[in-house]
Design a protein around this nucleic acid. Structure first.
Lengths: 190, 190
DNA sequence: TTTAATTGAGGACAAATGTCCTTTATAACA
DNA sequence: TGTTATAAAGGACATTTGTCCTCAATTAAA
């Protein structure tokens, strides 16, 4: 749901402190800005410093499917550097955001020369795979109600932080269905 | 669907050739054997040499959700080495299988000391993330019929290679629904 | 303020999918 | 060769979810 990676963020800040050649750039984005666009070339790896973004794929049907929400420390653009393919998703901010950018070359140099950095990247990717697998498995074999309960349990404030349409697109349902479940839930709680 | 990684398999075979201390072990499994069990400690990274396995999660509902099918060159057990957590899925063979096993320590040593190996692992994980994201996005925003058409297009022989129940569990549906769509499809084709 | 644009709620009906069961086919085994 | 498992096929009905609308509430713009 809202993914964070404080350990990685700290490491990047430390690197930036030592970085005399200024390869790590701090950047700002306003709300609603697309930092990466689906099916385009990716030149940088980015790390969220502050703010919230959605990572989503737009299908030929016109539907958006939200992969994850990215908070502090989350990394994007790294996959494309490794696979050499175009971006498979769009990164769009939900709030104003500051983030760090590392050019492809510098990122690959860090992978080669900084064992700690390399290990953090391996770990972060492993954890993306694990998290996604658990999520989709759960979602497939549980009811909408259970899925919603699960995310609201982990993020009680979600409905205030993220537009309903985005929550629905994350769960792979329509807003109509989301509203139906929310209503049933409220009636039950009262 | 059926994932393969020939480049990695070749590299492992090359390593095994040079491996005087015999840390890379070749192993056999019969059909239906569980090589890794969900929620247990993982001691080795494994690479499929020959055969087919399913990678699945069992939910508290009793449902199995199939993450992927693994063919030649596919790697499993690596995520748990990096995250330090228990296995989140079960690996069970669908055919007799031969595979290579690398102990955790030796695997981490390769990551540290063999840049080419490290780069192959980064690439393989990036590609798992990408593939899974594309798959779930597609599946969420298309009809069952379209989803089935997509996999049958990529793997025309699928219905003969893999039991229907497994295909259904991969698509996140019941066999009843799968049969319904297959029937409609056959009627249309004839 | 008024007007337009965006977001949220929900009714009514249609379509997709699941549940439960029964029957047949096929493979494995004593 | 008969007997028991296991996989496949599909009927009937219930439930879930989507589609298409309409309307209200909120926010942004004129």
């Amino acid at each position: 749901m809202i993914r964070e990676n404080k350990a990685f963020l700290e490491y990047i800040i430390k690197l930036k402190g030592q970085d005399s050649t200024h390869t790590i750039i701090e950047q700002e984005a306003s709300k609603g800005e697309k930092i990466i666009t689906q099916r385009t070339v990716v030149f940088h790896v980015s790390i969220v410093k502050e703010g919230l973004a959605k990572c989503y794929l737009t299908e030929d049907t016109g539907n958006d499917f939200i992969q994850e929400f990215f908070g502090a420390g989350e990394v994007f653009g790294e996959l494309e550097i490794f696979t050499g393919e175009l971006s498979f998703c769009t990164i769009e901010t939900l709030t104003p955001m500051t983030y760090y950018k590392i050019p492809k070359k510098a990122f690959l140099a860090l992978i080669q020369n900084d064992a700690k950095f390399n290990s953090l990247v391996l770990k972060l990717m492993a954890s993306k795979i694990r998290y996604t697998a658990l999520r989709h498995s759960y979602n497939q074999s549980h009811s909408l109600e259970a899925n919603l309960k699960r995310v609201l349990n982990e993020f009680p404030d979600l409905l205030h932080e993220i537009p309903k349409n985005d929550i629905a697109n994350y769960l792979g349902i329509t807003t109509r269905s989301l509203n139906r479940v929310l209503k049933a839930r409220n009636e039950f709680l009262s």
